[in-house]
Amino acid sequence: MFALLLQVIANGLLIGSIYGLAALGLTLVWGIMDVVNLAHGEFILVGAYLCYWLFAGWGISPLVSFALSIPLGVLFGWLVHVVLIRQVVGKPALTTLLLTFGLSILLNNLMLNIFTPDVRMIRWSQQSILVGPLVLPSTRLIAFGIVLLLTAALYLFLERTYPGRGIRALMQDAEAAAALGVNTARILLLSFVIGTIFAVVAGALVSVVLPFEPASALPLAIVAFVVVVVGGLGRPLGAMLGGILVGTVESFTGTFISQAYAPATVSFLLILFLLVRPAGLFGTTVR
């Protein structure tokens, strides 16, 4: 029993860290420009399909795709921001939500047409590492390592560089930041691009550890939303811890109740948090 419990926690941790990475992108964009990207699930799938397409079609190792998903995220994020998001920053939630809802429908059905509704899964490495009673699949460990690496990189970027501090400043007081010479438009673009990179990379990681299909966009997006709410809006560290929490809850539900109820449990968690602790586990302010 104890071994099983440990295994469930380990699974939750490894998958949850990927959720955390996906949510990092969402929380950054949401926190800084008050734009909730309902197409975030599709953004994640962009990375998943890149990885799958390169692997299945050309035999290219997912490790290469992980690296390639970064420039793809830059390009994709830049394009979406310049064409769409830029136009609605500061508009009411109704406008931004409907716009990104439209984008999500467009992208999702494009994926359905291009990649078909079939469930995909990359069978890349079947090896597992045994640690005591724990079975840790090597793909999940690699994904976990990449999550840690990227999270650390984002942390350093936000803490140690001028543009990174600019992002945090803009989140805390946009007018004061502008008065100090922060180029607001550029910071917004930068945040959206970073958010997109994280979504796309998270998707590439998803593709090696979980089965996915175009219809996965919605549950993935909901998981990311829950993680943002649990971790507190605009808090990168909170998103990572929230991701691990959500991953663990999902893992427990899947093991001890039924895999079928995992999405519903996540939804309940979301509603519970919105009602009881809207600022998240670690937050103190309500926005």
Binding site: Y162, R165, G166, R168, A169, Q172, D173, E175, A176, A177, A178, A179, L180, G181, V182, N183, T184
Partner: peptide, 30 residues
């Protein structure tokens, strides 16, 4: 505004409005 600040104008907003979740040194670096 970012170009105007580069020209050499700086404004202290009413109430100062330092970034509350940043340290003193980070505020100064901003």
């Amino acid at each position: 505004s970012h170009r105007i600040v580069e020209h050499g104008i700086s404004m202290v907003l009413e109430g100062g409005r330092p970034f509350p979740h940043m340290s003193v040194i980070e505020n100064l670096l901003m």
